[in-house]
Design a protein around this nucleic acid. Structure first.
Length: 430
RNA sequence: GGAGGCGUGGCAGAGCGGUCGAAUGCACCGGUCUUGAAAACCGGCGUGGGUCCUGCCCACCGUGGGUUCGAAUCCCACCGCCUCCGCCA
């Protein structure tokens, strides 16, 4: 959510920043609602002050035995009371309209974010590794001989429908190894705090991080009203919701390995083969809560944490900065990391790291008290995948595949695979 | 699922119809003392909003209603949390 003062101070600048994201101007409407709200608030407060003054006199009138004065003041208070109720109702209505409007507005891009309409306008920051030269046509992950016994979409369809998978044997273990490797690496090497959270959350949590109110279609909700998290960003970030954080407690850096659930509404027909796009998947997620001065540096740090995982796995990637048209709702700047998938002959998103500024902190009412005293302020929040486990599994399989249908696995995973480093063409770990 | 209890400032915790924006303690920020620190003592210290802004005003004791001249205090509803019993991984 945006700071109404910032909009008051520079409505044109606000609209201009929104326009970079392709959003229509709203500052005029916001300021009109804000002005109406303040008019009502001011009027209501004046009436309240009058009532309070009369209330005080009542005591004196009664004590003095001034029956006439008492009745007169009593009538005045009754009159003000009705007036206050009416004005407060109007102020509240204006405030609700304003909040609804503000809660539906996306965050503003930072100045250094490139303008653009869609992913084609994203700007590459760097590349790491070189895609391997194959002396045979590389297959997609679900076509590789050694993979097929352990990746069962038919059974998953019977159980759950499209966009689900049953993993078994070596593939299930490799999948588990990847998640553990990522989590252990972030904790041991990057100083993040291992966290385990619910995957069912209240509506407030979804509002806080920005999945709601606009994107309810993308997530699942239970009969009891809980939402299934589409990412652990929701729970990790909302850890500080409603809190007053001691300034010395920042930065907070969390990491969690969780199930994620997405309805993929609007993705019909996209990535239907294989396990690239599933309704349920695993992700290792990083979240940082930092001092406002440290947000930009933290974005780079977090991006490096994610890139580091791919480098340890020996998977070629490129890092792009999303253009204004491709950024998510709550982001001010986003770095996507795309891993090379030989089977698709292209880079595909495997991580997205975003700096949200105080946008989510305002929605969550998460504040910190600066060290050395001072007014409470909003911290800045960041979130990033480190990494999407299912997609990483795909990348490991496709990049390591051999002509005979076996797969060479990254040596770094051996400790989580009982020392094994290869998947045979029959689907065994050796 | 059944029964009961509780929601007050950063935290703990009083208050139970007016003198309460709210005692007290802790934490925090000054200051005295000290070579320095601690202790002790003195002072300060909630949040948000409005405004004709070196000030003044308004609101806020989970949320929303109600009773009353007047509500943190009484009543109702809702939300949340806790405890016990049942069930259960």
């Amino acid at each position: 959510m945006h700071d109404i003062r910032a909009i008051r101070d520079d409505p044109a600048g606000f609209d201009a920043a929104l326009a970079r994201r392709g959003a229509a101007p709203v500052a005029t409407e916001i300021l009109a609602l804000d002005a109406a709200r303040r008019d009502k608030v001011t009027a209501a407060e004046a009436a309240q002050a009058a009532r309070n003054a009369a209330s005080k006199e009542i005591g004196a009138a009664k004590a003095a035995g001034d029956a006439a004065g008492f009745e007169r003041l009593r009538a005045l208070v009754a009159e003000k009371k009705a007036e206050i109720a009416a004005l407060e109702a109007e102020a509240k209505a204006a405030d609700a309209r304003l909040t609804d409007l503000l809660m539906g507005l996306p965050n503003l891009p930072l100045a250094d974010v490139p303008d653009g309409a869609d992913e084609d306008d994203n700007v590459e920051l760097r590349r790491w590794g070189r895609p391997r030269a194959f002396d045979f046509p590389p297959r997609e992950h679900f076509e590789i001989a050694g993979v097929r016994p352990g990746m069962d979409f038919e059974t998953a369809a019977r159980l759950s429908g499209a966009r689900f998978v049953v993993l078994s044997g070596a593939i299930a273990r490799l999948h588990r190894a990847l998640g553990q490797f990522m989590l252990d690496t972030h904790v041991a090497e990057n100083g993040l705090t291992e966290t385990w959270t619910p995957v069912l959350v209240r509506e407030d949590a979804m509002l806080g991080t920005g999945q709601l109110p606009k994107f309810g279609e993308d997530s699942y909700q239970t009969r009891e009203g809980w939402w299934l998290i589409p990412t652990a960003e929701v729970t990790l970030t909302n850890i500080v919701a409603g809190q007053m954080i001691d300034g010395g407690y920042l930065p907070r850096r969390y990491v969690a390995h969780s199930q994620c659930f997405r309805s993929e509404a609007g993705s019909a027909g996209k990535d239907t083969a294989g396990m690239l796009r599933q309704h349920q998947f695993e992700k290792v997620e990083m979240v940082s809560i930092v001092h406002p001065d440290d947000g930009r540096a933290e974005l780079d740090r977090m991006t490096r944490c994610a890139e580091d995982i791919l480098e340890r796995l020996g998977l070629p990637y490129r890092t792009v900065v999303l253009c204004t048209g491709d950024m998510g709702f709550g982001a001010r700047r986003t770095h996507d990391i795309e891993v090379w998938l030989p089977g698709q002959d292209r880079y595909r998103e495997i991580s997205s790291v975003s700096l949200c500024g105080d946008f989510q902190a305002r929605r969550m009412n998460a504040r910190f008290r600066p060290e050395g005293g001072g007014k409470p302020a909003f911290p800045h929040t960041l979130n990033g995948s480190g990494l999407a486990v299912g997609r990483c599994l795909i990348a490991v399989l496709e990049n390591g595949q051999q002509a005979d249908g076996s797969v060479s696995l990254p040596p770094v995973l051996a400790p989580w695979l009982g020392g094994r480093t290869r998947l045979t063409r029959d689907g065994a770990l050796v």
